[in-house]
Simulated scan of single mutants.
Amino acid sequence: MLNEQQLQDIKSLQQICEQRDGILLKLNDDMLRMPSRADHMDYLHYEGDALIGFLALYGFGGQLEVCGMVHPDYRRQGIFTRLWNEALASGRLSTVSYILFNAPKASLSAPEWLKTIRCRYSFSEYEMAWHPLPEQDFSAADPTVSVSYRPYEEEDQNYVLQLYADGFDTNEEDTAEMLAEEACSSKRIRSMVVYHGETVGTLVMDYDTPGQAWLFGFVIDGAYRGQGIGRSILLQMIRRENEAGLQPHIGVETQNDHALRLYENCGFRSYVVQDYYELRL
């Protein structure tokens, strides 16, 4: 587990890289702070008292993602390669057949380094922030769509496993591990979507970033899609977070046209693109 000084050093290095490169890094700060974070997930390189390189592994169910950074003044010195080799030597990556590297699309240095380890581009994701639409009226609910939400309970686990297998093509072991990780986080809250008294979907809100509320893992049961349920619950979440003084955010794959249209129609606008590269091990 990272100590408070290391976490502060990571945040400082992140700010330097983002300001100098004109990018936004996706470092999942809430996961770095989890007391349950496993060993050999974080790799740091210091020069004296200054952190100049950082690489982190993130477990999303049984999948591992990688993100990191090197101080702009210390690049092309093999620092990130050394951190990557430390991660490989730790044995932590032996549990998966492939990993995903996350890099901001605007980054110039990341794609060059990823070429050296023969990664291939996999997909991109829009990060979107909500902005109120002039005509948006939250009070004008569709009376034919009786949608609400309730807190997630342990008894919901099997249904969430089923929803994620259908909606995201994840296996049960990966989803169960993700749910266990969520239970350790005070800043991630899962809800279940209810339609006419029946549980028909799920979503998670993440409150790690000050002033923001991130929605992810949003899925509606295939038997209930196309009935306006997703739009209704999305508008409810937007209204709730907006009234609490938080700006709703969401991520969506650039190829997911249906979800993208829904989010845009509800007021979300893209402000950054994150690229993902796949490496088979």
Rank of each mutant, 00 (worst) to 15 (best):
I99A: 07
E264R: 12
S185G: 06
V219A: 06
S124V: 08
R33L: 13
D174S: 15
T254F: 05
S270Q: 13
E4P: 00
Q157A: 12
S148L: 01
L25C: 03
F60T: 07
L57C: 11
P248G: 06
S186Q: 14
I233L: 08
F268K: 04
V96M: 02
N102Q: 06
P210C: 09
A110T: 06
E47D: 14
R269V: 15
A165C: 11
L57N: 09
W84Y: 15
Q77S: 05
E172C: 02
N242I: 03
I52G: 01
Q162M: 10
Q15T: 13
R82M: 05
N102V: 05
H45C: 08
W214S: 05
R76S: 09
E182G: 03
R37E: 03
E198C: 08
L25M: 12
D206P: 02
A140S: 11
G230H: 03
Q15L: 15
A110H: 08
A244N: 15
I250V: 14
G68D: 00
E181M: 14
S139C: 09
A129G: 12
I52W: 04
I238D: 01
L262R: 15
E172V: 07
W84M: 04
Y121N: 07
N28R: 10
I220F: 09
L279F: 04
I229K: 05
Y58V: 05
S109V: 10
L24R: 10
D142G: 14
K187W: 08
L7C: 08
M1W: 08
D206S: 06
P132A: 14
G201S: 12
S148W: 00
D206K: 06
L179E: 04
V147P: 04
A165Q: 13
